[in-house]
Amino acid sequence: MQPIVFIHGIRVSATMWDPVIAHLDRPAKAIDLPGHGTRAGEPFSMDAATSAVAEAIDSLGGSAVVVGLSLGGYVGIATAERFPGKVAGLVAMGCTSSSQAMLGVYRFVARLAARNPSRANRISEYGFRHLLPGPTGAAIVAGGLWCEAMPQVVDAVAEHDQLAALAAYPGRVWLVNGTRDPFRADERAFLRACRDGRLILIPGRGHLGVLAAPGPLARLIDDLCSCFQVERPASAVATPRPR
């Protein structure tokens, strides 16, 4: 049974994944990236982030499926490129956009947030709790919020060629997007870049909305992890079966 390493999104922390991990019956570990959570204050770079993921994989035996959402998905792609022997498979969620227009907006917002991070953190906390009320929203903010890290993160993601990274990785990749997620804009290009890729669309969910039902998401991830151990044919698009 392959263990899982979970990677969080921008300005949040490993606690984001707690509700999903609680529904899993396999070894799993969520990590904090540099500049976030227990690693706040550490400079963020893609090398530092992928090294953190590799260390977590080593702590679980040296091979794991990597699951990341948003920033976590981009870091997961970079980890698969840099450490292909450690990444048994990749589930990259909400990270299939390479739009320069969207990047420009995100860069502006990141710099604005970093000017007054305490205020930006309060606004972010309100937004997370409003978007995902109850335990899911509480888990997202439980490890703290780190808007001061956003400019470094956005620059690091912008400088990394995700399509080339996917093309370099020989393992299986599942691209998972909510159908309402704006970050799915270039999902077909990302899918074509994969040597062995699948695209899963979750109906009616937005960028963070995929976290709204942690039980079904955990079952989906568990099913995908099991698939990494089975030979499958060429790329396809799928939707999760209702449970």
Rank of each mutant, 00 (worst) to 15 (best):
M1Q: 08
P3D: 02
F6G: 01
I7H: 01
I7T: 02
H8Q: 02
S13L: 06
A14P: 04
T15K: 04
W17T: 03
W17S: 06
D18H: 08
A22T: 12
R26H: 12
A28N: 00
A28F: 03
A30P: 10
I31T: 03
G37M: 15
G37D: 09
T38I: 14
A40M: 04
G41K: 00
P43T: 09
F44L: 00
F44S: 00
S45M: 10
T50A: 04
S51K: 06
A52S: 10
A54D: 11
A54P: 12
I57W: 14
S59I: 12
G61L: 06
G61P: 11
G61R: 02
A64Q: 10
A64V: 13
V65L: 06
V66S: 05
V67F: 06
L69N: 07
S70Y: 03
G72M: 00
G72N: 02
G73H: 10
G73F: 10
Y74L: 11
V75Y: 04
V75C: 10
T79G: 15
R82F: 09
P84K: 13
P84M: 13
K86E: 12
G89Q: 01
V91H: 08
A92V: 06
M93Q: 00
S99C: 11
S99P: 08
Q100I: 11
Q100D: 03
A101S: 07
A101T: 07
L103R: 12
R107C: 09
V109E: 05
A110P: 06
A110L: 03
A110M: 02
R111H: 10
L112I: 11
A114T: 05
A114Q: 01
N116R: 15
P117Y: 10
S118M: 06
R119Y: 13
N121V: 08
N121R: 14
R122C: 12
I123G: 13
E125G: 10
G127M: 07
F128L: 07
H130F: 11
T136L: 09
G137E: 00
A138R: 03
A139S: 04
I140L: 05
I140W: 01
A142Q: 01
C147F: 11
C147M: 13
E148S: 07
A158H: 07
A158C: 01
D161K: 08
A168C: 04
A168F: 13
G171R: 12
G171Q: 01
R172M: 09
R172L: 04
V173D: 00
V173L: 01
D181Q: 00
D186R: 10
R188F: 13
A189Y: 08
F190H: 03
F190M: 04
A193F: 05
R195Q: 15
R195S: 11
L201S: 10
G204C: 03
R205P: 03
R205I: 03
H207E: 14
H207I: 09
L208V: 13
L211V: 08
L211Y: 02
A212V: 09
P214A: 00
G215Y: 14
G215T: 14
P216I: 01
A218W: 00
L220Q: 04
D222G: 11
D223A: 15
L224R: 05
L224N: 00
S226E: 04
S226A: 15
F228V: 11
F228P: 08
Q229E: 15
E231R: 14
E231M: 15
P233C: 12
A234Y: 15
S235L: 14
P240E: 00
R241H: 09
